[in-house]
Amino acid sequence: MSITLSRRQALGAMAAVAAVGTLGAPAFAREKVKVGALRFTSHAPSFVAFERGYFAEAGLDVEFEFFQAAQPMAVAIAAGDVDFGVTAITGGLISLAEKGAVKVVGGALQEEAGIDGQMILASNAAHDAGLTSPAALKGKTFGISTAGSSFHYMASKIAAAEGFPGEIGFRPLQKVSAIIGALKSGQIDAWAIVPHIAKALTAAGAVQTIGRVADYLPDYQVTTIFTSADNAAEERSKTQAFLAAFSKGAADFNAALIDRSTGDAAAEEMVKLIHGYVYTDRPYEKAAPSIRNGAMRITPEAALKMSSITDQLDWFKAESLVRGDIAVDQLVDASYVASI
């Protein structure tokens, strides 16, 4: 049986964990925890929580393991080699959950109206031929990494909203770099991607922006926090501690780069902190604009947008990309955070 906490209850549980750490008696004697991450701005809450001592306050001795893609991270967590990670809901993740290997326990990156989020792009050639808005995507080719990816989901929802479901041609290209190359060269017509990539491509004149994903999926829970099913069931204190520390990192990130409520100096400090993990091969002056452009809101207090999770699961089932009988509580352990 899953239990959904109210917002008040979730806040109280997180405050209790934080208070214990502040009093110098953490719930754990600095338990070692491996956190899977990608070197993306969207993973910044984990970096902030580490650098500002929030994990340590919660009794966690965190070590990062970096991945090149989300799917290998999911496999590592299912195997118990990594404890926690952040990724989009994909067919692969749902299949691991259906096998009883992983559980989603919190929310991370989200789309929000009024905040720069994922952008819908057209190749210059397609744009010149009339692809100037998502309404013109009918019959066009759209780049995705693989079938069952978040790219696949977004494009399908856009097509359905515009009245031509199933009438986009999907081109699985495996890697983001391959999709970028195909779009720039006109081998595909369109794509949707996070702002730090989209803005850079548009600014360079390599592609054209024709819309925003938030206009079609305004409450999209883009990424989620997940762990092994064993951790979720048997290591509640550790999982609660991780979520509490991650949430503090997310609050700092949102305040500095999304709400801009802490001032310019705090924003600069945040960008410098993130640069220790993201675009490390670039000098700060060149990396900073991309980090700022990649800032999207992280769901406060790791709350889960359950309507979005359910919509995604229903789409995967309707497309026969996962088993049709999998229930949402097989994918999500809703007992850890508030549902919104």
Rank of each mutant, 00 (worst) to 15 (best):
V332W: 00
M270F: 06
I225P: 00
I258G: 11
L11S: 12
S290H: 10
F170E: 02
L131W: 01
A74H: 09
F246H: 14
G294F: 11
E112T: 10
S308N: 01
A13S: 13
A327W: 03
I77A: 01
S228L: 06
L173R: 08
A44R: 05
S123G: 14
A327Q: 14
L23W: 11
D81H: 14
L109V: 14
D128H: 08
V337G: 04
L304W: 01
A244T: 15
L217A: 07
A129S: 10
K32A: 13
V278S: 01
T141D: 06
A25L: 13
P283T: 09
L273K: 03
D81M: 11
Y153W: 06
S156A: 15
S95P: 02
A241W: 00
A136L: 08
A19L: 15
H152S: 00
R236P: 05
L321K: 08
T90V: 05
A78D: 08
Y279V: 04
Q110T: 15
G205E: 08
Q68K: 12
V62K: 06
A161S: 11
Q118R: 12
H152D: 08
V75W: 06
I193R: 03
Q187W: 05
A190Y: 00
G85C: 09
K34Y: 08
I120H: 03
Y284M: 11
Q68C: 09
L217M: 08
F64R: 04
A147N: 12
G139A: 09
L23V: 14
D83A: 05
R7P: 03
A250G: 04
A49P: 01
M119F: 07
S228A: 08
S307V: 10
G169H: 12
P300T: 06
E319K: 15
D116S: 14
G114P: 02
F84R: 01
A161W: 01
A79Y: 03
E111L: 07
A241H: 00
A44E: 07
S261H: 07
Q208A: 14
F151P: 01
A178D: 15
A190W: 00
F316T: 11
D252I: 12
P218K: 09
V33H: 01
A125I: 11
A287R: 08
L121G: 05
V222S: 10
A147L: 13
V207A: 04
G130W: 02
K248M: 13
E162K: 00
G100R: 10
E63L: 09
N231E: 07
K238M: 13
A97W: 03
G143N: 02
A232E: 07
K34Q: 11
S133H: 08
I77S: 00
F64A: 03
G276N: 08
